[in-house]
């Protein structure tokens, strides 16, 4: 570790901890998952950046939405996102979560994922190259440093907006709201 960082470590230990242990939840939401194995294995080795796959949402703090999100997948995505502990970061991987991409007129894919869960950053392309994951990770580091990766705060503040949108597509959700206190007041 570089000496200059020691003061930073001492000042913000939690920030540095979040930065260098981005554990990505193991959830293959779409075809973008195909670029994850090369990233994790010998050629690109994401562990150099502290990125590891995590089996359970409780231990993960990075959610890579890899590729298109179908209506049926949105339900487990929302559920998984709500199970993750704060602070949590989401990155949309590929064109499809941004605006539907290839599937802009498909009846079964979600067009803009950020209407249903907050997204901290996007990686464009179909399919994005593995290098772009590392660019995204370093960018996320910068955002965490500056306190700009605030997706989870946005989710808490505007919980009613997100929950209403989720219910518009998925019908009545069968689990209680994550922040019940936010459901009553009008924050729109």
């Amino acid at each position: 570790m570089d000496r200059g960082k020691i003061s930073k470590w001492l000042k913000y230990p939690e920030k540095m901890g979040h930065k260098y242990s981005l554990w990505a939840i193991y959830f293959a939401t779409g075809c973008g998952i195909m670029e994850i194995p090369p990233v994790l294995t010998s050629r690109w080795d994401a562990e150099r950046f502290g990125v590891l796959p995590a089996a359970t949402p409780r231990q993960a703090n990075l959610f890579l939405i890899t590729g298109y999100v179908s209506v049926k997948t949105l339900r487990p995505i929302v559920r998984t996102y709500e199970l993750m502990r704060e602070p949590k970061y989401t990155v949309g991987f590929g064109s499809c979560p941004i605006n539907g991409g290839m599937y802009w007129d498909s009846y079964n894919t979600i067009k803009r994922v950020d209407k249903y869960i907050p997204i901290d950053g996007w990686i464009a392309g179909c399919m994005p190259r593995p290098e772009s994951i590392f660019i995204a990770v370093t960018k996320l580091w910068m955002m965490i440093d500056k306190g700009a990766a605030t997706g989870y705060i946005r989710y808490r503040e505007n919980y009613r907006y997100y929950r209403e949108n989720q219910e518009r597509i998925l019908g009545k959700l069968d689990w209680p709201p994550l922040y019940p206190e936010k459901m009553g007041e009008d924050n729109g």
């Binding site: 939401t29 779409g30 075809c31 298109y68 179908s70 049926k72 997948t73 487990p76 290839m102 599937y103 007129d105 498909s106 009846y107 079964n108 894919t109």
Partner: peptide
């Protein structure tokens, strides 16, 4: 069904060559 996109239907809306991608 978690990855259903309805290709067969989308392809009916695109010209022959557009379906390659």
């Amino acid at each position: 069904g978690y990855l259903h996109r309805g290709f067969a239907k989308m392809m009916e809306y695109r010209v022959w060559i557009q379906n390659f991608p």
